[in-house]
Write a protein that binds this DNA or RNA. Structure first.
Length: 305
DNA sequence: TTTATTGT
């Protein structure tokens, strides 16, 4: 895991600047791609199938207009759909195998950050919307040595007590090194909140990573601890993708990765910037597909600053 | 200020 931070990513970072010219190109196409579109347009997941409509979900086959024979294979249902949940304060995709979120996305703005909500009134709680087989519980975390680290941060949702309460579902939480959670990661969250002063809109997508590393036999393995009776996975790293909209519609992306270990908070946050592509490859996710997938002409986007 | 855990 140290390798990630020794590589050139460590210093270079990336910031994709979508210029004003691209903004015009966007609006000349389908409205779906306008930056003003809401949170839902930015979910890093491809289409939501409609439940019970097997023929709509079966993989597309070239030149085939009738439902494929494999429709019958799912007569008794799909083992999973996409586990998207919408909450008062955020939208999340749950990872039932790891008992943590796969990602959580939230919009930060002055209204959301202002209010009298009090985290002392909140308790971490099981998410009863998650099947018991796949649900993390407080007892899984107790005595584990890990914090219940929020992905959508409580302080991002002070506007309503309910919104803050919703961030305390364990489906919005992953085992996090206490030092990281309370120092460097907390600083990154504070920094994200501070960005609302300088940008029209701030969207934040956070999640766990399980990065491979070389073991002593020279081969690459993904190794991670699991805690509690439910074997809640301990991520090796965490990512944060910050989507910043300027007043003229320009979009800037910043992608951070921190290891799930103590991190010296004197290290400037910029040192944790990585290219968004590296997170997309490592996580299996695609961020801002509405911008980056739109055309083949990535050259229209300035890909390094 | 915000992030938390543990023990009573």
């Amino acid at each position: 895991m140290q390798r990630l931070f020794c590589s050139r990513w460590f210093i270079s970072g990336v910031s994709l600047a979508v210029g004003a010219g691209v903004g015009v190109a966007l609006s000349s196409g389908s409205n779906r791609f306008l930056p003003e579109d809401g949170l839902l347009q930015r979910i890093p997941i491809i289409p939501m199938p409609s439940v019970n409509a097997a023929s709509e979900i079966i993989p597309y086959q070239h030149g085939q207009l009738t439902p494929s024979k494999s429709t019958a294979a799912v007569k008794y249902g799909f083992p999973s759909l996409s586990h998207i949940k919408s909450r008062e304060s955020y939208i999340t995709c749950y990872d039932p195998r790891n008992r943590t979120p796969a990602w959580v996305i939230e919009q930060l703005n002055a209204e959301a950050l202002t209010g009298t909500s009090d985290r002392k009134l909140c308790d971490f709680k099981e998410d009863e919307a998650v099947h018991v087989y796949h649900r993390a519980t407080n007892s899984d975390y107790r005595g584990s040595g890990f914090d219940r680290g929020h992905l959508a941060a409580a302080a991002n949702h002070k506007w309503s007590q309910k919104a803050m309460d919703d961030t305390f579902y364990l489906s919005n939480v992953a085992p996090q090194n206490p030092h990281l959670n309370q120092n460097a990661w907390n600083n990154l969250e504070k920094y994200c909140r501070s960005l609302i002063k300088h940008y029209e809109n701030v969207y934040v997508c956070s999640g766990p990573l399980y990065l491979p590393r070389q073991e002593s036999d020279g081969k690459m393995y993904v190794k991670y601890q699991v805690i509690g009776k439910n074997h809640v996975a301990v991520p090796t790293h965490f990512f944060k993708v910050v989507i910043l909209e300027k007043k003229r519609g320009e979009v800037e992306l910043r992608t951070y990765v921190m290891p799930n270990t103590p991190v010296d908070e004197k290290i400037p946050l910029e040192r944790f910037l990585v290219p968004i592509e590296s997170i997309e490859r490592a996580s299996g996710l695609l961020f801002v597909p509405n911008i980056l997938k739109r055309t083949n002409s990535l050259q229209a986007i300035t890909a390094r600053v």
